[in-house]
Amino acid sequence: MKKIVILSFFILASFSPALSQGYSVGDNAENFNLKNVDGEYISLFNYAPAENGAIVIFTCNHCPYAVAYEDRIIEIDKKFRSKGYPVIAINPNDSELVPEDSFEKMKVRAREKNFPFPYLLDKTQEVYKMYGAKRTPHVYLLNKENGNFIVSYIGTIDDNYKDASAVETKYLNDAVTALLKGKKPNPDFTKAIGCTIKDKNTQK
């Protein structure tokens, strides 16, 4: 009997990610395998630069907040890739709803801005749901612990989308810096105004 109870607990627990609202800090991030703008597929678990973790950012072409952060995302990648925390950008939008976010337009934007990081398309829109991303840009900082990618910070890049020179708190930068020192990010959760993720199933 006890075994059945324990077993059913594990069965329920294994289903819970599907029922939940995506990842919280402390959760174990699952793998994804998505097409990059260069045509190659990138999977989180096999991505060589992700030695110590990864900075997964749901972003896109069309959203002015995402555009306002492009240069800052490039800087973050340049600063932390060599330290084992590369940026992986994922566009979660349905291009039938936003033509500007099509795979072809992603390639154009990546070339124009010379993105040093992969820019992946979440074509089936399963990955953003798995993460529970709500807007672009939306950051999930993952820390590698015993081979697992543990969600360590969720939120925004800094406290001023409008003006990079007026930023007072660099939340993401501070979070990665904390991980590099073996500390937990504080805060580990922030919010920001952003664009909704364009999905036919959630938008009429």
């Binding site: 406290d159 001023n160 409008k162 003006d163 007026a166 919010k191 105004i193 952003g194």
Partner: peptide, 21 residues
């Protein structure tokens, strides 16, 4: 016009992720 939105989104509603509308 208040770009430090993390400081005020929860004051509008705890249920708000920050996405508009």
């Amino acid at each position: 016009d208040d770009p430090n939105s993390n400081s005020w989104i929860d004051k509008v509603s705890k249920d708000w992720s920050g996405a508009i509308p």
